[in-house]
């Protein structure tokens, strides 16, 4: 049956004049979609605010840049990449979505991500936590562990040069989830690991990844590398 549409009622996309080659230099195989729907069927957030990955891929392929960049859809995705795993055409859907995130005006990146990333670039961590406060928390948690039987004398080595292992820390673990730090540390202790945490630029998350901000992502990664070079450590544990 023909699709009867009242042209005045709705916004009409003129696909004649779209630039279908708009994303040509994005080599994520988006044009090979056979619209099988596997991605949308497997996506855990399909249907939220009308988001679904197949639609996303098609909009990229049609060149509907503005609609995508302005919509909430790129930010609904959790970047779990299950869609990529099942896509029979090997379309890198999560990378596509990240690509669209990168096109949004940085000031319009969803608040928490944007602010966290800005803080991280400025202070080295998403919380903007000063170095003294960080060291205090670390030492405090270490003392709590030391009171546990079998962990007598336990300390958290900070900035230990030449240690075997450097570990980064998710900001949540020095904020609301300090208990979770203890699991790691107890394991290090039991395994007699020679480890350390940096006192600066210890942030384990990299919201440059999630916001599609390559530049910020590079800065964050570069800081970890710097720490490793400075402390002469070869192995990194990045539990994120």
């Amino acid at each position: 049956m023909p699709d009867v549409i009242e042209p005045d009622a709705i916004e009409i996309t003129d696909i004649n004049h779209l630039n279908h080659q708009r994303f040509e230099n994005w080599s994520f195989s988006q044009d090979f979609c056979v619209t099988c729907g596997l991605c949308s069927s497997t996506c855990p957030v399909s249907g939220i605010d009308n988001f679904d990955p197949r639609k996303f891929v098609r909009m990229i392929s049609l060149g509907l840049e503005e609609q995508l960049v302005e919509s909430r859809w790129p930010w609904i995705c959790t970047m779990c990449a299950k869609c990529e795993k099942v896509c029979p055409m090997g379309i890198e859907i999560a990378s596509l979505i990240r690509g669209v995130r990168s096109l949004r005006d940085r000031e319009k990146v969803p608040g928490i991500l944007h602010k966290g990333l800005a803080a991280a670039i400025k202070t080295g961590n998403n919380l903007g936590l000063p170095q003294d406060d960080f060291v205090f928390i670390i030492e405090d948690v270490a003392e709590e562990i030391a009171e546990e039987p079998g962990f007598e004398g336990f300390t958290a080595p900070i900035d230990k040069k030449g240690a075997n292992l450097l570990t980064t820390i998710h900001n949540k673990l020095v904020n609301t989830h300090t208990e979770d730090l203890k699991h790691w540390w107890r394991i290090f202790h039991a395994a007699k690991e020679d480890w350390t945490v940096p006192s600066e630029n210890w942030e384990g998350t990299n919201w440059g990844l999630f916001t599609g901000d390559d530049k910020a992502m590079k800065i964050m990664v570069g800081r970890i590398v710097e720490n490793m070079e400075k402390l002469e450590i070869k192995t990194l544990l990045w539990p994120e």
Partner: peptide, 10 residues
């Protein structure tokens, strides 16, 4: 589990 095109959700 399948994405329903009309319902626009799985």
């Amino acid at each position: 589990i399948c994405f329903d095109q009309h319902e626009r959700q799985s």
